[in-house]
Write a protein that binds this DNA or RNA. Structure first.
Lengths: 235, 235
DNA sequence: TCCAAAATGTGATTAAGGTCATTTTTTCTG
DNA sequence: CAGAAAAAATGACCTTAATCACATTTTGGA
């Protein structure tokens, strides 16, 4: 069951993969010349808000959350990134400190690309440059959408949306088309939807009795994506 | 009373003015060669979400809100822009439709710059290009901050922040330093803070009895910015 | 300048969802 | 594989802020 036609998933996807796609083979090799492959255990922090960047990251495998921690410890997830996606380039480009933090949601392999190589590619390739502008502008649309959703939608709606988005992210995971399993903590779900963790559990139970999802421990299967989309009440 | 040291206002400011500043005089003239000056009455829509862009806008005078309208009619203000700021470039750069709408909050004069002139400047000036990347990345930080604030802060905190931000925007307005007057509808305040309009009024009354603000009709004077910052509980 | 429409302000009520305390289940580690 | 620690789940309660209904004031246009 595809989302096409029933849910505008584009409004939740950054498109950083496309940035690397415009590079020629030699340009790509040149960008990655000093790359180092880093392994992160589930839960490990990749970079922390307020620190100074020294390069960018390319996710090879795994899943990474970008999040912001509030006053005291309350965490808000901004985005969940997967293989092929870049993270950490905003701080480099804006010449500021990291505006958010990043952590591995599962064991992940991530390439670190030094700042110099990134900026060199930027100066060398107009296409790279232009695609980056395009991607950043698209991100703007994604974040504006998030703001409006968080500010105006109810908790069940936001949770439904979070589940729909996660389903897309976990799609490639399992080889079997029909077996998309969301393996995510209730805590992370809560901070994605911007609601309390207890409320997430209550709402999941509701979705379960309605036959929309199934759960086993922390694992979640989405059984009726159409009804979930309906629950999200988004169009 | 300056905010410096007591409130990180940078996290609420886009920096599109700086984009034009990197242009040489001739480049600037070239960008504005087909410019047309448009007058907008208070409340008039400048562009609407979902429509196709044909250029960008440079605010000469007045105030403009960027906002997104939800399912049915509920509006969320994303940003309030003033003189010298650019709007509408995201859609051009991302080659998508407008992700949000824009309307004049007061009578405004706005230059329309055709898409071609904008992209020409982009291809012609690497500095312009780079500054745009920088600005877009900074915007990312601003929006991420907004998401976290809206998701995690209470209504009084969000309203306090909205007032602090507006005070900065209305600063240049009056020539007299000590007389900053916010002239904004309760509705707009509500959709900026993401709370109900009645709640805005109640909270303003509270702030008033605490001596933090003064009001006369729709006009708002901020009397004690320090206490307002304290109310915002932001650091 | 008057009148209608729009915006502001007020009070009562309600519902949504957060918090807290505790139990049960799952996961991780030695 | 056992035990400890972490996460999930449950229930009771409470706070915040939304909604509704209506009164009052302000504003802008004929």
């Amino acid at each position: 069951m595809s989302l096409s036609g029933i849910f505008p998933i584009d409004r939740w996807n950054f498109t950083t993969q496309s940035v690397l796609n415009v590079l020629s083979e030699s340009e790509y090799a040149d960008l990655l010349v000093h790359q180092s492959e880093l392994k992160y255990k589930k839960g490990e922090v990749i970079f922390r808000e307020g620190t100074v960047p020294s390069g960018i990251f390319l996710i090879q495998s795994g899943k990474v959350k970008k999040y912001k921690v509030d006053n005291l410890s309350k965490e808000q997830i901004i985005y969940v990134a997967g293989p092929g996606e870049l993270i950490g380039y905003h701080a480099v480009l804006s010449q500021e400190r990291y505006p958010d933090s990043s952590a591995a949601m599962e064991d992940s392999v991530i390439s670190f690309i030094p700042e110099d190589d990134f900026t060199r590619a930027l100066h060398h390739s107009p296409a790279f440059n232009q695609q980056l502008l395009k991607t950043l502008s698209h991100e703007f649309a994604v974040l504006v959408n998030s703001i409006s959703v968080i500010a105006q939608r109810t908790a069940p709606e936001r949770l439904a949306i979070a589940l729909i988005v996660l389903r897309e992210r976990y799609k490639e995971e399992g080889s079997d088309e029909k077996e998309i399993i969301l393996n995510i903590s209730r805590m992370d779900l809560a901070s994605m939807a911007g609601i309390a963790q207890e409320n997430v559990i209550r709402l999941l139970k509701e979705f379960k009795t309605e036959g929309i999802i199934e759960t086993d421990g922390r694992k979640i299967w989405i059984r009726d994506i159409k009804r979930l989309v309906k629950k999200s009440n988004y169009r």
